[in-house]
C-alpha cells in the first residue's frame, strides 16, 4: 500500500469520526438544551443565546432547586398525584401484559392447536391497525360497560395479552432448543409443568425485555389517556404535562422544560441502562418483514 493511500485512509477515518460526533451532538442537543433551560432563572431562559449554564453558573444550583420545586408544587397541575396514577396504571398494565403474553406466546410456539398460523398472522396484523381507527368504538364500548371515569381503559386490555409482546416472546420460545423440553416431556411432564419449571427460568432476560418495552410504551402513551381519562384527578403524567403547557397564564419555559425532563427521566434512565433491549427489539420486526 502506498503512503498516499494510507494518508487518505487515515484522514477519511478522522473525518468520519468528526462527522459522527457532529451527528451525535445534533441528536443530543434538544435534550441537552431542555436540561440547560430547566436550571436557568426565568429572565435568562427567555434570552437568545447558546449558553448552557446561567450567568453566573452558580445560579444553576438555585435554578435546580427553585424550578423543580415550583413544578412539583404547582397549584393547578398536581404532578405528584399524576405520578402516582401513572405508576398504578403502568404497574397493572405490565403485570397483565407479561402474565398473559408469556403464556399465550408459549402456547403459540410449542403447544399443538388448530389454526396456529392464522392466529400468528392475525396477531401481527393487529399491530398494523392504527389506534385512531379503534379509538371511537373503544370509547363507546367502554362507556357502555362503565369503564370511563376509571383507570381500566388504560390497563385492562393487557390482561388479555399484547400483540407486540406475544410476538417477541413467541420468537424467543421458538429459538430455544427443543431438546430440553422434550427431555422433560419424556420424564412425564405435561406442557404446563415443562413451561413452569424448565422454560420459564430460562426466559428471564426475554421477559425483562418485554417489561421494559411495555413500560416505555405505557409511560409515554398520550392518546389513550387523552380519550379515556376524563377526571383531572385521574390524569397520567403525560396529560399533566400537556395541561401544564396549555393552562391559562403561559407557563415559563424554564419550568416547562423542568417538568418535561422529570416526565421523561424514568424512560431515559431505563434506556441508558438497557439500550440493547430497545435497539434489538426494533430489529425483531424488520427481520420478519
Amino acid at each position: 500500500m502506498t503512503d498516499g493511500s494510507k494518508r487518505w485512509q487515515i484522514s477519511g477515518r478522522v473525518s468520519r469520526l468528526m462527522l459522527l460526533s457532529l451527528i451525535g451532538m445534533t441528536f443530543a442537543m434538544p435534550l441537552i438544551w431542555m436540561a440547560a433551560t430547566s436550571v436557568k432563572p426565568e429572565s435568562q431562559a427567555m434570552q437568545q443565546g447558546f449558553s448552557l449554564l446561567p450567568d453566573p453558573p452558580g445560579l444553576a444550583v438555585d435554578g435546580l432547586k427553585d424550578n423543580y420545586a415550583a413544578v412539583l408544587n404547582d397549584t393547578t397541575v398536581n404532578f405528584p398525584l399524576y405520578l402516582r396514577n401513572t405508576i398504578i396504571v403502568v404497574f397493572l398494565g405490565i403485570t397483565g401484559c407479561v402474565v398473559s403474553s408469556v403464556i399465550v406466546a408459549y402456547g403459540l410456539a410449542r403447544v399443538p392447536m388448530p389454526g396456529r398460523k392464522s392466529l400468528m398472522v392475525i396477531t401481527v396484523g393487529t399491530m398494523l391497525i392504527p389506534f385512531p381507527v379503534l379509538m371511537a368504538p373503544l370509547f363507546m364500548l367502554y362507556t357502555k360497560i362503565g369503564w370511563i371515569g376509571t383507570f381500566a381503559p388504560l390497563y385492562a386490555q393487557f390482561f388479555f395479552g399484547n400483540a407486540f409482546s406475544i410476538f417477541l416472546m413467541t420468537q424467543f420460545f421458538r429459538s430455544m432448543p427443543k431438546e430440553l423440553e422434550e427431555a422433560a416431556r419424556v420424564d412425564g411432564c405435561g406442557h404446563w409443568l415443562t413451561f413452569r419449571h424448565i422454560v420459564l427460568p430460562l426466559s428471564k432476560t426475554a421477559i425483562a425485555v418485554v417489561v421494559l418495552l411495555h413500560f416505555t410504551y405505557m409511560w409515554n402513551d398520550f392518546l389513550a389517556p387523552l380519550i379515556f381519562i376524563v377526571d383531572r384527578d385521574k390524569f397520567t403524567l403525560m396529560l399533566g404535562l400537556q395541561l401544564y403547557q396549555s393552562k391559562a397564564g403561559q407557563t415559563p419555559w424554564n419550568l416547562l422544560m423542568a417538568a418535561s425532563l422529570l416526565t421523561l427521566l424514568p424512560v431515559l434512565v431505563v434506556f441508558v441502562i438497557a439500550n440493547k433491549a430497545f435497539t434489538r427489539s426494533s430489529l425483531s420486526g424488520a427481520v420478519k418483514g
Binding site: G24, F27, M257, L261, S282
Partner: peptide, 24 residues
C-alpha cells in the same frame, strides 16, 4: 456512543418532545 445518542430520542415521550421542540 453515537448509536445511543441517535436512538435515545425514540424513547422520549411524544408529549415531552413536543414541549422541547415548541421551545426550540
Amino acid at each position: 456512543i453515537v448509536r445511543l445518542m441517535v436512538f435515545a430520542p425514540t424513547v422520549v415521550p411524544l408529549v415531552a418532545s413536543a414541549m422541547i421542540w415548541l421551545w426550540l
